[in-house]
Design a protein around this nucleic acid. Sequence first.
DNA 1: GTAAATCGATACCGGTTAGTTTCGGAACTT
DNA 2: AAGTTCCGAAACTAACCGGTATCGATTTAC
Lengths: 245, 245
Amino acid sequence: MAQHDDGSVEVESAQPGRKRDPSRDAQILDATLEVLAEVGAAGLTMDLVAARAGAGKATIYRRWTSKAELVIDAVAHMKRNQVDLERLPDTGTLRGDLLGLFKPQSIEERERRLKIMSGLASLLSQEQELADAANSAVVEPWAEAHFALMQRAVARGEISASADIGTLSQVIPSMAAYRALVQRKPFDLAFLVSMVDGVVMPALRNQPSDLPRDLSDHRSDHTASRVDGSPSPRRTTSVRKRSKP
Amino acid sequence: MAQHDDGSVEVESAQPGRKRDPSRDAQILDATLEVLAEVGAAGLTMDLVAARAGAGKATIYRRWTSKAELVIDAVAHMKRNQVDLERLPDTGTLRGDLLGLFKPQSIEERERRLKIMSGLASLLSQEQELADAANSAVVEPWAEAHFALMQRAVARGEISASADIGTLSQVIPSMAAYRALVQRKPFDLAFLVSMVDGVVMPALRNQPSDLPRDLSDHRSDHTASRVDGSPSPRRTTSVRKRSKP
DNA sequence: GTAAATCGATACCGGTTAGTTTCGGAACTT
DNA sequence: AAGTTCCGAAACTAACCGGTATCGATTTAC
């Protein structure tokens, strides 16, 4: 900023002409998020965003240099109104607090966020199939292994039979995958040890059954379907073609 | 299949000519995975795959109808050689078994898988920035909230101060994100309850410190950086441009 | 009122890439 | 050896899309 002799700071002399509306930015970012949630990042085009925002492409390029920057900015934009750390639930018990996080913040807002997140992943899965394939190729077998190990530990009496090993067997594989996929941190021994010693082993040493239940006690719908620990039937994603039409 | 009067089944009469080599399929799928790991799904082109496989594009299109099917098939293909449920470690303790899973299976093979998975997500992160933005917009604030709640529960004496709340505060948000991103299952109350009652609460009720340690006791490098539970400085992903060059 | 600046719309350019076609050669069957 | 089928290479087509340029309309400061 240029400093003048008289100590005044140089001000851009006001020019005639229309002013750029800054609130337009948010509208465009919102439109971007909507398109993202609908067609996914793979199907997102600048023309779609422009049409949705009721704007010209030129207007968008006047504000962001590229599609990449627009999308990144839009995703960062959705941070606003996220969980408010000043207004946390306070029910007296940790369990109540954790569950309380579910309701207070507008539930449809979280739904929207997850939809956008799915839209991002629809990069991953223009066809949902791809995400399925990745999950069943990497995470599921791993979770099955954990499940089998835990089941064996139950059998030998090392851990309580009432532990929710269906859920617990998915914790490390899922978090490792998320870590690799999004956080891009290595799956190293340090991570594994803190997961085993900080999460899984402590959890296994407690029976969840003697905890208070103030919400309906849904049993997990996502527990491993392999109750016997047997290997799952290998899902053959056979999309091979036999002959061309 | 046509049935004849004499009871014999019609057999395709063998024709002269070269036979299609089925092992070529696996080579092409492997090439696809290699390319996937190197340039990501976004940068994957049929020409790259063909070149890597030493094949013509026509050969690929003779076997798969589209790029999407090829990639899905390739991802499903990598399921082979996954964790072998028949050869699980057996160290006598669950903790040992869980940690034992880390070594036995060829470690570079798992590295490769995670690389492929990252390749898939490089859709997500043509620029790593996008994944960062998504993570810090959705998961991090959520984990911070959990961290704050847990810290409060420690302060009031409800849970042990030795619990690894840095790691534990990330469990539910990360798994919810993975669930939304890849598994495409809803984040509903049933899931939340089984995570809270099956994983987090049981884990919090145990001190990890009195567990046996037979591996170096790395403390988690991934614990929440907010040790005081204060809201993080809002990361302004400001990629906006000021003026066109 | 007028000049400057932004606006939405639209046409356009250029690069990329999925998918097709063609072709000469090689392999396998009879 | 002959006939047939598959092969890799490469040229080709067509579509899509990011990004730019242009234009007439509109707004606002002076």
